[in-house]
Design a protein around this nucleic acid. Structure first.
Lengths: 136, 136
DNA sequence: CTGTATCCTTAGGGATACTG
DNA sequence: CAGTATCCCTAAGGATACAG
C-alpha cells in the first residue's frame, strides 16, 4: 500500500468524482443514459423521478460542461437534440456497476434481476463491454 | 443483457446506494475511515474539510442507522467512542476504488500517487484485500 | 421539442454556545 | 471527548408560465 504522512493515501479523487457527477440528479441522468438508453430531454423529464425542467436543464448543462455528456442535433430527427455519454462519461460504468452491486445486495426490495447481478459478479468485464457496445 | 419493458434494466440500486451513503459528507466520512484510518469523532472534525459538529453528528447517526458504520466504546481508551465500518460498509470499497480510478484519471491536479493507481488498475482485488486487512 | 425565467418554499448546512 | 441546541441564511429545488 501507498502511504502519505504515515497514513494511507487520502483519496481526494473521490471528492473530485463526487463534484463532477455526484449530485442526485446527475447520477440519475447518467444512469438513464447508461442503462435505459435515454437520449432526449423529454425522455429524462418523463423518467418518473419527477425532475423539473429547470433542474434538468441545469444538470445537463453541468454534465456537458464537465465533459461527461455531449449534445448534438439529432442527425435523423433534425428538430431534436441528442444527448450522449462522452468517453469520459462511459468510463463511469465501473462506478455505476459497483453501486449496482452494493445496492442490489443490500436493498431488500431491489428491482435488479438476479440474472444480471450474477453476471455482474461473475464477469463484470463482460457486462461493461456489453454496455459499451450498446452505447455506440 | 437483461431487459425490462423493452429497455435495459433501470438500475434503481443506484438510487438506493446514493440514498444510503451518497451525501457529500457521508462520502467523506466513509473515505476517511476507509483510506485514512480515522476512527474518532474529533479526527473527522479535524479532517480539514470543515464539517461542523452538528452535521458530523447527523451523518454519523445516519450511517449507523443504515448499518454502514458502527460505534462502540473504545476498549483501550474507555473515554473515547470508536467508529468502524461494518461489513456492509467495507463492501463499499469497490465503489470507492472505482471513483478513485475515474477521479484520478480525469483530475489534472490529482493527489493520487501514480504507483497506487497503477496497482489499482493492474490488480484491484489485491488493493481491496489490502484495505480490508488494514480495517480489521 | 428544448429549454428560460420567475417565484416561492424548504431543507441543509455553517457558526457558535453549551452539556454530560 | 462527543456530541446537543439554536439561530440564521443561503442555495437547491419544485411549480409553472412562457419562449425560440
Amino acid at each position: 500500500m501507498v502511504h502519505k504522512k504515515n497514513k494511507y493515501w487520502c483519496g481526494c479523487p473521490i471528492r473530485f468524482t463526487m463534484k463532477h457527477f455526484g449530485d442526485k440528479w446527475s447520477f440519475l441522468v447518467v444512469r438513464d443514459m447508461m442503462f435505459k438508453g435515454k437520449k432526449y430531454y423529454n425522455e429524462f423529464l418523463e423518467a418518473g423521478e419527477g425532475i423539473s425542467t429547470n433542474i434538468l436543464a441545469s444538470r445537463l448543462r453541468d454534465l456537458e460542461k464537465h465533459g461527461v455528456i455531449s449534445k448534438i442535433r439529432d442527425p435523423e430527427k433534425k428538430s431534436k437534440v441528442l444527448y450522449s455519454l462522452t468517453s469520459k462519461g462511459k468510463e463511469l460504468i465501473p462506478v455505476m456497476l459497483a453501486m449496482i452491486e452494493w445496492g442490489s445486495k443490500h436493498d431488500p426490495n431491489t428491482e435488479a434481476p438476479q440474472e444480471f447481478i450474477e453476471n455482474l459478479r461473475n464477469n463484470p468485464e463482460k457486462i461493461r463491454q456489453d454496455i459499451l457496445k450498446r452505447l455506440e
